[in-house]
Computed example of a mutant assay.
Amino acid sequence: MSRFLFVVPPLVGHVNPTLGVAAELVERGHEVAWAGHHEAIGKLVGPDARVFGCASPELVPRAADLTGPAAFRFLWQDFLLPLGEAMRPGVRTAIKAFQPDVVVCDQQAVAGALVADELGLPWITSATTSAELVDPLSGMPKVKAWLTERIDSLRDGRTGPDPRMSPHGILAFTTRELLGPVDLPHDDVWLVGPSIVARPSTTDFPWEWLTHRPTVLVSLGTANADAGHRFLAQAAQALGRMDVRAVVVDPDGSLSEVADNVLVRRHVPQLDLLPRVDAVVCHAGHNTVCETLWHGVPLVVAPIRDDQPIVAGQVVDAGAGVRVRFSRATSAHLEDAVTAVLDDANGHRKAAGAVGDSFRAAGGAPRAADHLEKV
């Protein structure tokens, strides 16, 4: 039996992929604990999990029009770097109390890697998005140098490896079929595919509303409601003109009048809904993309910021979807894009199915647990 400490940020998309891995380790008789924001993490890992609380700065909302390098710099400067500083005492306490054999550190919770490395513990990177594997800052050398300098400032004068890329191993929740033929950081990058497990949901859904007509789901994820009002309105208009059933996730309730074939919901049970849809329109968030492709469903991707443009590019390169410009997409653009991915003659569904097949073959949570046991 071994002990594994997962160090994660208070971000749903970074915690969910690790839940299946942790559950698999527990099933095999190992002990698992978590370090992170107690309230946020506790809601996701369940009441029976052991959670060591860490301080966390308040996540300052980003302006809806903040994209590109400016959005990346804002994310690190105003949240992730302060998060790294704030979490360090809590991570130290967790390691001292739990005495883990291995620390599994999310790429955006750098405190885990910095403290584990300082204490001489083996640590593994959890790469919940494939964007970091392809050096997203290669075209922005000034931003890359700035971030490296800021991360180094957290080391208190010590030297060490990049806390986002463990030399001991990187769990990457993707496969070559989506990632593409890129050079990986080193040989110990384990492409285990998505770790998709059932998530309890209390969200009601009118399943009887779905019919034999093609169904399209529109979702911009959990963190983009502020930026998505115009896009959701255009999507609702486009789908209202089509012979489909459309489900539009509108957390803020910004949509008012929609066509009869468009169902607007503040929340949906996404994992339960995906096997019953024929296309997904989304922001190219890594989790939504992987959950969609797992079911062989093609995508219309409209990336907003952060890793989303890279993930969107991977979807298009794999042939599994069509890309539109988030800030300029009109209802006409979206109607054309949805029509294209629904047309099997274009091959998007076949390509999405091939990526989904690769995900299941990669092994997911059990394969990830295999690697962690070997560490």
Rank of each mutant, 00 (worst) to 15 (best):
S2V: 12
S2Y: 07
R3C: 12
L5P: 04
F6P: 03
V8W: 11
P9K: 13
V12G: 02
T18H: 05
V26R: 15
E31P: 02
A33E: 01
A33Y: 03
W34D: 04
H38M: 03
H38W: 06
A40Y: 08
A40P: 00
I41D: 05
A49L: 01
A49I: 03
G53E: 12
G53N: 11
V60N: 05
T67D: 12
P69E: 14
A71N: 13
F79P: 11
L83T: 11
P89A: 13
I95Y: 04
V103G: 13
V104M: 06
V104T: 07
V110H: 05
E118Q: 14
S126I: 02
T128S: 13
T129Q: 15
L133P: 14
S138C: 10
M140C: 08
P141K: 05
E149F: 01
E149N: 07
R150D: 05
R150K: 15
D152T: 06
S153L: 07
R155S: 13
R158N: 07
T159P: 01
T159S: 14
P163W: 02
M165L: 15
M165R: 13
A172R: 05
F173L: 11
T174V: 06
G180F: 10
V182I: 14
D183W: 02
H186F: 08
H186I: 11
D187L: 07
D187P: 07
D188C: 03
L191G: 09
V192S: 09
P194Y: 08
I196K: 00
S201Y: 07
T202Y: 02
W207E: 04
H212G: 12
R213M: 03
T215N: 02
S219Y: 01
S219W: 00
G221F: 05
A223M: 14
Q237V: 12
Q237M: 12
Q237G: 08
M242L: 15
V244C: 04
R245C: 10
V249Y: 12
V249T: 14
D250V: 04
S256C: 04
S256N: 13
R265N: 04
R265A: 14
V268R: 00
P269S: 11
Q270R: 00
P275Y: 00
V280A: 04
V280R: 01
V281A: 05
E291F: 00
V297P: 02
V300I: 08
P303L: 06
I304E: 11
D307M: 05
Q308E: 12
P309E: 11
G319H: 04
A320E: 05
G321I: 09
G321P: 11
R323F: 02
R323C: 03
R323P: 02
R328S: 15
A329N: 08
T330M: 03
A332Q: 10
D336I: 01
L342Y: 03
H348C: 09
R349F: 04
R349K: 15
K350D: 14
A351V: 07
A352H: 10
S358P: 00
D370M: 06
D370L: 10
L372C: 11
